Computed example of a mutant assay.
Amino acid sequence: MAQDKPCALISEVGGEGFIQEAVDIMKQHFQIITHQEFLQNPSLSSKIQVVFLWDNKPQIEPSLISSLPALKLIANGGVGIDHLDIAHLKSLGIRVSNTPHVVSNATADMAMGLLLASARRIVEGHLICVDPNTTKFPRTQMGFEVTGSTLGIIGMGHIGFKIAQRGRGFDMKILYHNRNRRSYEDEQAVGAVYFKNKEELLREADFVVLAVNLTPETTGLIGHKELSLMKPTATLVNISRGRVVDQDALVEALQNRTIRAAALDVTYPEPLPRIICQLLLNSRKDFYTIIPACTLLRTRDHPLLHLPNVIITPHSGTDTAATIVKMVQTMVDNGVAAVQGQQIPNEVQP
C-alpha cells in the first residue's frame, strides 16, 4: 500500500460495500482500509483521516469515533444525512459531507419509473406474461393515464425540480409544495404552480411524489389525514425516506382503497420484516405439514409485502453505474479537501 497517501476507512469491497471501480477511484488519493482490516489491526486507527460512508456502513458509533483520533471527515455517499449527528460530530472536530446534485438525475428517473410502472401496472403485466398458467391476456388490466394528469411534488429541491422537468415531458400539470417558493424563472421553466399549503396540493394531484430530506419536521409528513385528502384514484410515490410516511396509515389507505396505489423506493425498515420458513433436513415433521404452516406464518410479514396495489424497490434510486462513479468522485474530492485543510465543497452544516 502507498504509505504516502492519507488513510481512509470503508466498509468493504464488494458485497454491501463499494464496487471495485469505486475503490479504484479512492485509491488514486487514499490508502484504503476496510473495516475488517481495521478490526484485525487496531494500530491503523491513528492513521485514518476520512471515513467513506456507504449505505450507513460502517456504522458511525461512539466507539468507532473514539478510536479514530485523526479523523477529519465523514464523507457520506448520497444526500440524506439523517443517520448522522452533524452537530455532535462537528463539536468533536469532525466534518460531514454529502453528494448533492450528482444523484438528482438518477433519483428523478427512478421517481418517474415508479410512477409509470404503477400507473400502467407494468409489474402486474409482467407477472401475467410469465405465469405458466397464462393462456390469454385479460383486457381488464386497465392502467391510469399519465399524459395530461396532475403531478404534485412535495419537496422542490434539486431532485424535485428534475422530477418536474420529466413530468413536463409527459404534458403533466405540475404542482409543488416546498418550504421556500422557487424563483419565477424556475416555475416558468417547468410550468409549476406553487402551493403554500400541501393539503390543497394533495386534493388536486393524481400523483404525489415525495422528494424531501428526512428531518424532525418531515418525519410522518404523510399520515392518515394527508392520505384521506388524496383522490381515490391517486398514487403516492416515495423516493425520499421511509419515515416520511406513516406506514400503518399507508397500509390502511391501500387496503381501504382510500388511494389507488403506492410506489415506494424506500420503506422503514429496509428491507421490510418478513417471516422466513426454513425446512431443516433433520426435521421429523412431514413436508406437507410444514408447507401449510409456512403459509400461515406469511401473514406475519409486513402487510405492504402482499398488497396488490403497491410496488416496492430496494432503495435503488441512485443505483446506476454512472451515478455511483460520480458520487464516489465527489466523496473523494471532499476527502482530499478535508485532509489538505481546504474548504470542503459539499460540507453539511448542523
Rank of each mutant, 00 (worst) to 15 (best):
A2K: 15
P6D: 06
P6K: 07
I10Q: 09
S11R: 05
E12A: 15
G14A: 12
E16A: 14
G17Y: 09
F18V: 07
I19A: 14
E21F: 06
A22H: 09
I25T: 06
I25S: 07
Q28H: 12
Q28T: 14
Q31P: 00
E37G: 08
F38C: 11
F38Y: 15
Q40P: 02
N41I: 07
S43E: 15
I48E: 06
V51A: 08
V51D: 05
D55M: 09
K57N: 09
E61I: 15
I65R: 02
V79I: 14
H88W: 11
K90D: 05
L92A: 13
R95M: 10
R95L: 07
S97Q: 09
N98H: 10
P100Y: 03
H101P: 00
V103P: 00
N105W: 02
A106R: 00
A106H: 00
M110P: 02
M110I: 09
M112W: 08
G113D: 08
G113L: 11
L114N: 03
A117Q: 04
A117M: 14
R120H: 12
H126T: 05
P132Y: 03
P138I: 01
R139P: 00
T140L: 10
Q141F: 12
F144H: 13
F144Q: 14
V146C: 10
I153C: 11
I154P: 00
G160R: 04
K162H: 14
I163S: 08
R166Q: 09
R166W: 10
F170K: 00
M172Y: 09
I174D: 04
L175P: 04
L175N: 08
H177M: 02
R179L: 11
D186P: 00
E187W: 01
E187S: 07
A189N: 07
G191I: 02
N197D: 15
L201D: 02
L201N: 04
R203G: 00
D206H: 09
V208K: 03
V208H: 03
A211W: 05
N213R: 13
T215S: 02
T215V: 01
E217S: 06
H224P: 05
H224N: 13
E226C: 13
P232T: 10
A234I: 11
N238F: 02
S240R: 07
R241P: 00
G242L: 01
V244D: 00
L250T: 12
L254D: 03
R260D: 04
A263L: 08
D265F: 11
P269Q: 05
E270P: 02
L272S: 11
D286P: 01
F287Y: 14
I291N: 05
A293N: 07
T299L: 11
T299F: 10
H302P: 03
H306Y: 06
H306W: 06
P308M: 04
N309M: 01
I311K: 04
I312W: 00
T313P: 03
S316N: 15
A321I: 15
T323W: 04
K326N: 14
K326L: 13
M327C: 13
M331G: 11
V336I: 15
A338S: 03
V339L: 03
V339Q: 02
Q342T: 02
Q342A: 13
Q343C: 11
I344P: 00
Q349V: 14
